[in-house]
Write a protein that binds this DNA or RNA. Structure first.
Length: 480
RNA sequence: UCCUCCUUAGCUCAGUUGGUUAGAGCACAUGACUGUUAAUCAUGGGGUCCUAGGUUCAAGCCCUAGAGGGGGAGCCA
């Protein structure tokens, strides 16, 4: 292990007078002809440490090369700060330049940049306060996901990234092939002959690990997946990525109510974990959030601060209603009576963003779980309710984000499942292995999918999903 | 994919009715300043006005097409 000190530890230290060595990137330098103050950050914390250099003790050339963005190593003594903004600082004895950053061309300046600009220089984003905080929180959140499931007896199941089943209908897929695109082999009918492809068949990047997850649950009992997922939809929104991370637990012997209980407990655990373990970064984002909100018009402004809103979610039960009740609430609303919904409300429609927003943000003002959707608008594998019209689906809707979780109890009855597949034109032959779980030792089971980046949006208060993943993949954008 | 807005200095933006030499703040450079807090003060350099056509005596400004970006919608997580 290297011998230098991480700044997070140095700032917590009370070992005044001790010798330390830090390495990091310069945020700002200021001062006068006698003394220079250098703020250095090494990514271990949102806080930079102040390095104090007596100008007379250092050669001019070294001090000149200490510019915003430069990487330096500092040897010095930890001292109590004379300034008010920090408890301790480093009185420098030796400074070496590890890497220059020409101030004329280094894009990051000691001033605020727009998120749009930083997206164009995503390779340098991790050096900013905001993205440092976001990526540290992203780590903590991912760790919390594993900890929660591990502590609750779930097994982490690695489902494949490359799949042959394009049957689920979760979205457009990215094709995976090693065929010569210029001159692919052809069948006698003239179509591309995928039997000559690497896997001897057509393959794609996964759109969901759920079906394979069910296979795991039907033997291990409780499993979860957590990995990248790919959708080739031409979606250009603040909530969609072509490559995103999804968490999909699958539980044998869980019905739809157990499923909801788990989802709510899980989400609250994640929020609590980040609030407890990322206090500094959350405080920074909370202040940032408040500034952003003040720039908005009064009627679009959030009523709560970021941390306040997270605490509110922790302190309140998610509202649980059926699809039918949701439609009744919408039909009874003044919003509907005044004709303010762009999409008309009636039983059977898929709820539009405006409807979900009304329920979550205007009516209940807290997270809402909707169950019992019409079977026509949901996937083939969802358990059919006795009414013959609805399925045991559940969507969890969050303010500002919309659907954060989609899940269901799965149809465990082979006949009902294959019947539904026929109706929805899902090919049974390619999913033969999935059907065998119902053929041999079938049982009640449930699961859901949580969009990791959507959870990140809610926790960080960021407005654009491209800003909560280090290297966003969106239509026409894969630069970094 | 659809709707809508935007593109002028490194960044964030002004730019009047189409008029002659293109503006600010910040950043950067130089200087001043005895401990600063994205320091402060002074001075200075810095422009393919997104691209290609068009209208006009004259285009940053008007028209057409394209590219890139933001926001909203759809699809969804």
């Amino acid at each position: 292990m290297p011998k230098h000190n991480r700044i997070a530890n140095v700032l917590k230290s009370d070992a005044i007078g001790s010798q330390i060595l830090i390495k990091g990137w310069v945020r700002t330098k200021r001062g006068n002809k006698n003394v220079a103050f250098i703020a250095v950050n090494d990514g271990s914390t949102i806080h930079s440490i102040q390095v104090v250099a007596d100008v007379a003790q250092f050669d001019e050339e070294t001090l000149r090369r200490i510019t915003t963005g430069a990487c330096i190593a500092v040897k010095g003594t930890l001292v109590a700060s004379q300034g008010k903004e920090q408890a301790v600082e480093i009185q420098a004895q030796q400074i070496s330049i590890l890497g220059d950053a020409d101030a004329e061309i280094f894009p990051l300046q000691k001033k605020a940049h727009t998120l749009e600009f930083l997206r164009e220089i995503a390779h340098l984003r991790p050096r900013t306060n905001t993205f440092g905080a976001i990526f540290r929180i992203r780590h903590a959140l991912a760790f919390a996901v594993h900890k929660y499931f591990n502590d609750n007896g779930f097994y982490y199941l690695h489902t494949p990234i490359i799949t042959a089943s394009d049957a689920e209908g979760a979205g457009q897929m990215f094709r995976v092939t090693t065929l010569d695109m210029e001159n692919p082999p052809r069948t006698p009918e003239g179509t591309i002959d995928y039997s000559e492809d690497f896997f001897g068949r057509s393959t794609n990047l996964t759109v969901s690990g759920q079906l394979e997850g069910e296979l795991g649950a039907m033997g291990l009992g409780l499993i979860y997946t957590f990995g990248p997922t790919f959708r080739a939809e031409n979606s250009n929104t603040t909530r969609h990525l072509a490559e995103f991370w999804m968490i999909e637990p699958e539980m044998a012997f869980y019905d739809i109510h157990d499923n909801m209980d788990l989802a709510e407990d899980f989400i609250k655990y994640l929020i609590r974990y980040v609030l407890e373990n990322c206090a500094d970064d959350m405080k920074f984002l909370d202040e940032r959030f408040i500034k952003e909100e003040q720039a908005k018009k009064a009627d679009e402004r959030s009523e709560m601060g970021l941390i306040e809103r997270l605490q509110f979610v922790l302190d309140n039960q998610f509202e649980r209603i059926t699809y039918t009740e949701a439609i009744d609430i919408l039909l009874a609303s003044n919003h509907h009576k005044k004709g303010k919904f762009q999409f008309p409300v009636q039983w059977g429609i898929d709820l539009q963003s405006e409807h979900e927003r009304y329920l979550v943000e205007k009516h209940f003002k807290k997270p809402v779980i909707i169950t019992g959707y019409p079977k026509e608008i949901k996937a083939f594998y969802m358990k059919q309710n006795p009414d013959g019209k609805t399925v045991a689906a559940m969507d969890i809707l969050f303010p500002g984000i919309g659907e954060i979780i989609g899940g269901s109890q799965r149809e465990e009855n082979l006949e009902k499942l294959t019947q539904r597949m026929k109706e929805m034109h899902v090919p049974e032959d390619v999913l033969w292995w999935y059907l065998e779980t119902r053929k041999f030792g079938t049982c009640e089971h449930s699961g859901f999918g949580l969009g990791f980046e959507r959870m990140m949006l809610f926790i960080t208060g960021m407005g654009n999903i491209r800003d909560v993943i280090p290297f966003p993949r969106t239509p026409k954008n894969a630069e970094f």
